[in-house]
Amino acid sequence: MDVVLVLVVVAAAVILIVAPLRLGRGNRGEAPVGAQRAELEAAKEAKYREIRDAELDYRTGKLAREDWQQLDRELKADALELLQQLDELDRVR
């Protein structure tokens, strides 16, 4: 019983570990373009969150109107740049 259990577990683990080497590549998620897209998407979401946070700060009275407008312009410019980079990535594909 001990031997069978050990053989089954070892075989399953070895198959799992060796699989990427046997196929000769990492999985699709690791393709450089896919990884870059994921990072840009994450950066975009973070930037959106910042824009919303700034707006919430303004609407709840923490930010003066002019401060918010300036901040909003800067953050939206950053967000647009990220969107352009994402579109660029689509074109390359």
Binding site: L16, I17, L21, G24
Partner: peptide
């Protein structure tokens, strides 16, 4: 480069396998 990514994936799969073996 492709081979490197395969080794990286194999290292990651080793983590999954480690979890399985320790769970047993």
């Amino acid at each position: 480069g492709r081979s490197g990514r395969a080794w990286i994936a194999s290292g990651r799969h080793a983590v999954y396998a480690l979890f399985g073996v320790l769970a047993v």
